[in-house]
Each structure stands twice: as C-alpha cells, then as structure tokens.
Design a protein around this nucleic acid. Sequence first.
DNA 1: CGTGAAACGGAGTTAGC
DNA 2: GCTAACTCCGTTTCACG
Lengths: 165, 165
Amino acid sequence: MWETENHSTIRLDEVDLKIIRQLQSNARITNKDLAAQLNLTTTPIYERVKRLEKMGVINSYVALINPVKVGKGLMALCMVRLEKHTKDKLAAFEKHVANIPEVVECYHLAGQYDYHLKILVRDMNTFQDFIVNKLSTNENLANVQSSFVMSKITDTTAIPMLRNS
Amino acid sequence: MWETENHSTIRLDEVDLKIIRQLQSNARITNKDLAAQLNLTTTPIYERVKRLEKMGVINSYVALINPVKVGKGLMALCMVRLEKHTKDKLAAFEKHVANIPEVVECYHLAGQYDYHLKILVRDMNTFQDFIVNKLSTNENLANVQSSFVMSKITDTTAIPMLRNS
DNA sequence: CGTGAAACGGAGTTAGC
DNA sequence: GCTAACTCCGTTTCACG
C-alpha cells in the first residue's frame, strides 16, 4: 500500500509526486517553473529534489537519443534459454552479456525463458554478427528466440505515478 | 555505414558523439564542464547541443526513477498473440494498450509473437488485476505469455555510440 | 516546511577572427 | 566553427517566520 512504508518504499506527498511526474517528462524544467506550477517558491522545490536524489528515488538524469538518427535502425528482443542453471553458470552468462555493448537490456526471468535481452544494432547483418560472434560464444547457451520490433506503440521511461496499481 | 548518410541517419563528428555520450549518462552536465572535457569554450557546445535537439537526435531529457522506491516492485514482460491480424483489429489493440498506464513499453513485433509489453506494477495482485481487468478486455486477444523480472543485469537508456555495430 | 532576498555561476547572446 | 566577454536568469544559501 502507499500508506504503509516498507523497507524500500518511501513516503511521498502530493508535491513530491508532482515534482517526479514533471521531471520524468522533462529533466531540465527549472525549479522556478516547478515552483510556479505548485504555488511555491524555489527553495522548497530545490530541497525536495535534492532529497529525492539522496533517497535514491531519482536515480539519474539522462538525455534520450533517437536510435534511428544515430544509425541504430534495428531493435531486437531475444528470449534466451540456458543449458545449465548452476549459480556459477548463471553468473558467467550474466558477465558475458554485460560486456556486449549492443545489449541495452538484460533481465533474469522467472517464466518460460531464462533471460530477456534488448538489442540495438544498425541492421540485420550486424544482428547476425551479434548472434554468431558475440552472444552464442557462451557455451552454456541452449537456444535463443528472437523477435524484431516493427513499431513502438508505447516506449516510455516514465513510471506511472498513480496512487493505485 | 556511418560515412554514408541516408534519409534518417545524421552526420556526427567526434565532438558530437562525445557530447551525446555525456548527455546520455548525465543530462544535467553543464556546458562549461562539457567544454572543459572537450577542450572547447561553451559557445560551440551550446550550439551543437541545440543543433542535436533541433535535428531530433536528442529527443528529450528525463529523470530516471527507481521503481521500487515508488512502489512498483514487479516488472513483467508479456508476449501477446492476437486472434485476427486485420489492420483495424491491430489498430484497435494498439489503442487499447496505449491507454493502460501500467504498460510502459509496447512493441509490434515480427516473429513468433505479435506484441511485446513491459508492465510495471506494485505486486502480483495488481498484475492479476492488469491481466484480467485491463489487458484481456480486448476481444481480439488470443493468448499472453508472461515472464517476471527477477533481476536486472543491464538496463540502460544509453544507446551504444560506437563507430561499428 | 515555508518565504524572501542575496550571492554565485551557468545559459544564452554578440562581436570578432 | 571557434574564442572572449557580456547580460540575464536560475541555482543555491541563509535569515527568518
């Protein structure tokens, strides 16, 4: 529940939530503008933002780049199954994947597959190079089921900040 | 190729790439600091950043929030297959999904499944509510294969800015 | 927790090469 | 395309309610 703070969840009031919503859509909004929207002065905004940063609610501020404009025309999703699931085999695979720059996302899963990977490459040729020369050099890999992104319906880094859900 | 500019890819020199790399890891770095790192003054940095924004290379600046700290303890990935693939049925499903706030990612896929969804919710109860009351209210949905994220090995918004791949 | 004002530094502009 | 210098405005701090 939002009301009952556990080890990791942090108590945030309406003003905090509004600050977070704004910063999630525009990290460069000024404290002055935020203050005006929230009928406050800049000082409390400044202090609340600093507090959210220190608490780790705000992890970082980043620029989002259009992948197509920088030559990354192909996004692929790979569902990976491994041969063996011993602790050190899992760790080895994770270390392997963490060192492949094309992998922008790698999640360890509970479910039908072991890992989910998101890959950003120039085209299908570079994807093949990724599969053959980079991913499948791990000996513990059993099989990979790849899908290719044709269009993005939703693609946001903003966490839905609702009171429920 | 990086050298041959097509309709969407933009010619970027070393300085542009370094600016992009920095802004991808810290959107709030000052032009002054960027200038110092690149042995330039602030004016060219300022103009290059503005140019990258206008060209759509830089899409936006956002704050990244720790989902756990704001009560989103469960990330799920859903692979969705639809019953019928007519143009209007696809559009209807996409419109349906675009209106569900828990869906932070929805990609139309080429491959074994039709859509990939990334879901952020509080816990398994709210996930069930998402599946039963929000996702599967679309009549064209055939089946959903859900996986749950146990850990994140890599999770970056930064596009690998290498000369190859 | 909030206001208001002061000190400081970066954003944005302009002239010149 | 770059430097240097300037103006302006937001950030940051602090005294105070």
